[in-house]
Each structure stands twice: as structure tokens, then as C-alpha cells.
Design a protein around this nucleic acid. Structure first.
Lengths: 140, 140, 140, 140
DNA sequence: GTGGTCTAGACCACT
DNA sequence: GTGGTCTAGACCACG
């Protein structure tokens, strides 16, 4: 799964792990229907308490990212189509955008530079996406 | 000061206030050298605990945004509030951009829509900025 | 708060408590903005573990029923307008309706009787609603 | 048998299957005396663990919906599957109605809309019922 | 004082 | 085996 935890960042472990799993889903590294490690296995590999993983899977299930099947395990959910209303989506992303802008502008970046950074991050997410049909192409 | 607190967002109050003060600085509403309200005044106007304001001023001082002069109060710092190296700036903003992208993409937005949202938020920030060509006007 | 827990029903404690709080909210017994008991207090009065109450408040916050303010406590949320899309609402209620119908029909009730039961339950919820302006009227 | 399992709803599989069999009984698709599939057949067609089917038949037998005859298999029970007193029936359905109402009202639906949803669900159940005037037709 | 997170370990239901 | 819930108690951040 390649999840890395920064124990000294102050950010809660469960948030870190959730974010990395979300990223893996968005970038396509985790495909819909794919089975997640069991709570006990993931807890062991991350060296955290099983109940912490329980919370992680719970939160992801709440957000519609994984679905949990009793006795079988957790699985990446099939495309979660619009659980939230479009206004909510807009509001959530708008808030994150504002936060990013405040920090960037405060530290002297221009809007253009910030958007360039956004595009660069998007490129990284896309680059992580497995492209099974064109694996050998490097700079397409 | 026009600081608005969202008590129900789950985001710590001190963080909200810090962010809005930073925003006021980058948008030019607060000019270098300007005096900040006293701790007890700000606490009263924001209806928060004075110790919370203490923490806010401490954090802002730590980030180089205000300077506290013993017995005189807190002032917006003169120097550019840019303590971090360009790489650090890039890293911080990049991280915020990634979080925004992950949420937006996950909820079905395209890169184009997300960037549109960023521009819209930037517009709102700019709208709050006092018009630089009419600096000398006091009560416009 | 008048919350009663049935320890032998097999239904999880947190679900029971959540349901009763939701009921109190829709019936108006708990008003928007009202303060909930602190985690420790509620835990003590319900004689459950504080972490169980943490889970309860967490879930209610996730559903937009309460808002939690760090260091201040939990409060009934101001009217949560349409967090879910109308289709989701329809789906959720439809599922609950179907379940009720299956049980009722299986046990020999007619659609008419079932709907009568629904109306009766609605009456009970309404009856529990505090009516501050017409308190003395009995059978209005 | 036309049983559909929603693996991602979080509801236990055994409960889902039980409910659908009950539904088939009340809607007349399964007639009294009719033979149920063998445990291993049903397990295979539903792609679930045989022990899950064992539990399902046990639960249905316990509720008086099927009767298990040693060495012959399970059959839909002859007598009306009404074990509970009218008061009990009222209580069970009332509880389900209340839960439905709480969710619906909380999400902004009116009583009228909720009852409309109930009728719509009833319509779907009726649509699945084989036409009683054409009972003798086998392959209609 | 408030809630948030994490650990540790128990017991249960489901597959 | 799987996840779900609950208890017990620690430590931290926020107000």
C-alpha cells in the first residue's frame, strides 16, 4: 500500500492515512472494487493500534470511499456519484482554495504562480495513475 | 477588523483568526507598522477568551507577521513576512493544492472547474483589498 | 435529556442514543443552538464509557446534527439545509419505508393500516414538540 | 428466487436475504408449502457461504416463515406467519415508522412526501406480486 | 474546563 | 477469518 506516516507532524495519524488512501483512489492506484488490507493487517503494517484503523475505515466508509462488508473486509467503493449536493462540493473546494491562496499570497506568490503549482500537483497525481495500455510511453 | 468566526466549522478559532489576519495583511487591508487591537479589546470584539488572543498574537509573532513591543502592543511587521525559502513556500502551497485537488476530483470536479474556483476565490480576496490608486482617501 | 438505553436489545448503545437525540431534534425538544451535555457528563449520566459518547457526538456531527466547538462543547446545529442530494434523501427514506412495509405486510397489516400507524407515530412526534405559545390548550 | 444482495449497504447479508424471502412470501411470489432451495444450492446461487444460508433458514424457521423437515429440506410454512399479537405487530411497525419519519423529517421531507414515498414503495412491492386472477397459468 | 486522538484489550456478530 | 462495539485510561490541543 505504500503509506507513510509522519509521527512528528502533529497531524493525526488517521487523517494522514485517510488522505493518502483518498489520493491513491483519485489517482487510480486503488481501483474500484479492490480489496483493502484487513484491519489487523493494516494495523500491523502501519504499526498502529487496530482501533485506529477501525476509525480510518469508518471515516472512509462515511465519505463513501470504501464499503465495508461484514466478515469479508473493506473494498474500494464503486464510483460514488454525487452524495453531496453541488453547492456543498463548491463550498468545500472553495474553502480549501481560499486557504491555499492565503498562504501562497502571504508568502509572496502571485496568482499565476499558485495556479501553476496547482497544475503541477495535478500532473503529479496524473503521473501516479497507472496507464496499463501505454506503459512504455514516457513523455506523452 | 472585520473578522468573522465560524463556530461550527470544526476549525480551531485561533487558526481561523490567524488566517484572517494573514489574509488582511496579504490583501493590504492591514499595512506594515499598523497597530493591532489590544489583547483584551480583540478578545471582547471577537467574543473569545483572552488567552485565545494571546495564543493568536504569539503564533503571528512566531511567523513574523506581527511584532510585539513590550508595553505598546502588537504591530504588523515591517519586513516582508517571508521567512521560508522558495522551496519551502512551494512545498507548503503544493501540499494545500494537493489536498484541494484530491477533494475536488473525488467529488467529480474537473481540473478546469477547480481552477475556476481558485480564480473565483482570488477575486473575492481582491475585492476586499482597498483600492491602491486611492490610498490617500481616508473615508471613501 | 431523558435518554433511555436498552442494554439487552442487541442494538448498539451509540445507535440507540443517536436515534433518541435525532428524535429530540426533529420533535423540537432540542432546539438549534442548544448546548449538549459535555462528553464526560453524558457518559456519567448514561453510565457508559466517555469514548462511547465521543463516538456518538462524532457521528451526530458527521450527519450535521450537532456542531462541536473545541473547548466549548457540542451544540445542536442550526438547521442543516440539504447536505445530501434529493436523490439520496429519497433513497434513504424509500429503503426505510420498504423495510417497514415488508414487516407490516408480512404480519398481516394492510397498506391502510400501516399508513395509519405512520400518521400515529407522526402525531406522537408532534405531540412531543413543545408549543410555548399555546401551552394551556389541551385538544387544539 | 430473484434475490439481490447489496454487498455495499453495510446491512448484513443474512438480514437482506431474510427480508427478501419474507417479502416474497407476503407478496405471494412464494406460496405456502412451496419447497425452498437446498442450503448448498441457495448458497451457490447467492454466492455466499453455506453457513450463512444455514443461519438464514434457522432464523426464518424461528419466525415461523419456513418449516424444516429432516432430510427433505425447507418449506414455506402453511399457517399464517403471524406469531405476534396485534399489539406487538403495532409496536414493531410503529418503531420502523418512527425511524423512517425521523430520517425523512430531519432531511426536510414533509409528512405528505414521506407517505407518498411509502405508497410508491408499496406499488413496487405489488408490481412484483404475481397476478392473482391468473393463478393457473404456469409460464405467463 | 472542553473535545480529539491513540493505545490496549475484551467480546460479539457475520462470513 | 472478517469488522463492530465497548471499556479503560493516557496524552494533547483548544478556550
Amino acid at each position: 500500500m505504500d503509506i507513510r506516516i509522519n509521527y512528528s507532524s502533529g497531524e493525526p495519524i488517521c487523517r494522514q492515512v485517510c488522505d493518502q488512501i483518498k489520493l491513491a483512489v483519485v489517482s487510480g492506484r486503488l481501483q474500484a472494487g479492490e480489496k483493502m488490507p484487513s484491519i489487523r493487517d493494516l494495523a500491523q503494517s502501519l504499526k498502529v493500534n487496530p482501533t485506529t484503523v477501525v476509525r480510518i475505515y469508518n471515516e472512509l466508509a462515511h465519505e463513501g470511499i470504501v464499503t465495508v462488508r461484514q466478515g469479508q473486509g473493506a473494498f474500494i467503493a464503486e464510483g460514488a456519484p454525487q452524495r453531496l449536493s453541488p453547492q456543498e462540493v463548491q463550498r468545500v473546494v472553495g474553502e480549501l482554495a481560499r486557504k491555499m491562496l492565503i498562504e501562497g499570497l502571504r508568502m509572496g506568490m502571485s496568482l499565476t504562480e499558485i495556479i501553476k503549482t496547482v497544475r503541477a500537483q495535478y500532473g503529479e497525481i496524473e503521473a501516479a495513475r497507472p496507464n496499463p495500455t501505454e506503459r512504455s510511453q514516457k513523455s506523452a
